[in-house]
C-alpha cells in the first residue's frame, strides 16, 4: 500500500535527541536534590536572610569607601592598560592586513586570554604576585585584552579594502596606511568595545576581591563570613550605585568620541 505523501520529513535523530535531553534533565534534578520541597525550605531561609539584611547598615564606612575606590582604580587602570595592549595585538591579529606568521601568534595570545574566567585568572595572579590590587589589575587586563583584542581584530577584518588600496596607491608608508586607511574605519567600533569593557571591568573589579585580588569584593566577602548581612546589603547597594555611575560615564565617553561618527551609528 502506497503511503500518503508526506510534506515534512520526520527527523528520527532529532526526536531521539529531545527525548534524551528530557531524560537527562529529570536524572540531573534527582541527583542534585533539585526538588520543590527543597526549594520551599530554601525560600524560608531566604526570607530570614533578607530580613537580616534590612535595614542596610554601613558598619565600617572607612573600609567600604576604601574598597570602593580601590575597585574603581582597579577597573580604570585595567581598562586603560588593557585597551593600550589590545590595540596593537588586535591590529596584528587581523588576517586581512597581516601575514599569517604575525597574525597567528597574536590570535593565540587572544585565545589564551579568553580561555579562563577572570576569577580563575585572578587566583592565578594572587598566587603569582601576592594578595592585593596588582593581582586584580593584571587579571582584568588579561580579560580586556581577550575581549577587545578579539572584537577589534574582527572589526578590522570587515573593513573596506578599497579605502586601504587608495591610501596605499599614494605611496603612504605602512604606519600612515594604518592611521589613515584602517583606523578611521574601525575607530567608532573600537570606542564602543573599550567603553563596554570599562563597564564590564567595573563589575568584575568588585568580584576579584573575593579571591584576594583587591577591591570591594574582599570587604563584601568578609562581611558575609561575619554574617553582617545588613553591612552586606549596604555594600551591594553601593556597588549598584557605582555600576550605574559607570554606565553614565561610559555613555558620556562614547558621546565625546563618537560625535563625529553620529551618521554611521544609526
Amino acid at each position: 500500500m502506497a503511503a500518503n505523501p508526506r510534506a515534512f520529513e520526520r527527523n528520527r535523530l532529532a526526536t531521539f535527541g529531545w527525548l534524551a535531553l528530557a531524560a537527562y534533565v529529570v536524572y540531573a534534578c534527582s541527583r542534585l536534590d533539585f526538588t520543590w520541597a527543597r526549594f520551599m525550605t530554601g525560600l524560608d531561609n531566604g526570607a530570614r536572610f533578607i530580613g537580616r539584611m534590612l535595614p542596610p547598615n554601613i558598619a565600617q564606612p572607612d573600609t567600604l569607601l576604601k574598597g570602593l575606590t580601590e575597585s574603581l582604580e582597579i577597573a580604570v587602570l585595567a581598562s586603560f592598560l588593557g585597551i593600550l595592549v589590545s590595540l596593537p595585538i588586535g591590529l596584528i591579529a587581523a588576517r586581512n592586513l597581516m601575514p599569517p606568521w604575525a597574525s597567528w601568534p597574536a590570535r593565540a595570545i587572544i585565545a589564551l586570554c579568553r580561555s579562563f574566567h577572570p576569577v580563575i585568572v585572578a587566583i592565578l595572579f594572587v598566587k603569582a604576585v601576592g594578595f592585593g590590587a596588582l593581582a586584580g589589575i593584571l587579571a582584568l587586563v588579561v580579560a580586556s585584552v581577550g575581549f577587545i583584542g578579539k572584537l577589534f581584530a574582527e572589526a578590522i577584518e570587515e573593513i573596506s579594502l578599497k579605502q586601504v588600496e587608495a591610501v596605499r596607491a599614494t605611496g603612504a608608508p605602512f604606519m600612515s596606511l594604518i592611521s589613515y586607511g584602517v583606523l578611521p574605519q574601525v575607530f567608532s567600533r573600537f570606542v564602543g568595545f573599550a567603553t563596554y569593557q570599562l563597564d564590564s571591568n567595573l563589575r568584575n573589579s568588585t568580584m576579584v576581591g573575593i579571591v584576594g585580588a583587591g577591591g570591594i569584593g574582599g570587604t563584601l566577602f568578609a562581611a558575609f563570613q561575619r554574617f553582617d548581612y545588613d553591612f552586606v546589603c549596604a555594600i551591594l547597594l553601593c556597588i549598584i550605585g557605582m555600576i550605574m555611575v559607570g554606565e553614565v560615564l561610559a555613555t558620556w565617553v562614547r558621546g565625546v568620541f563618537l560625535e563625529r561618527g553620529k551618521v554611521d551609528e544609526e
Partner: peptide, 15 residues
C-alpha cells in the same frame, strides 16, 4: 608617490 590614481568607487576614506 609619482603615480596618482582615481577609482571607480572613489575609494575615499569615508569617515
Amino acid at each position: 608617490r609619482q603615480i596618482g590614481m582615481v577609482f571607480q568607487e572613489y575609494n575615499l576614506v569615508e569617515r
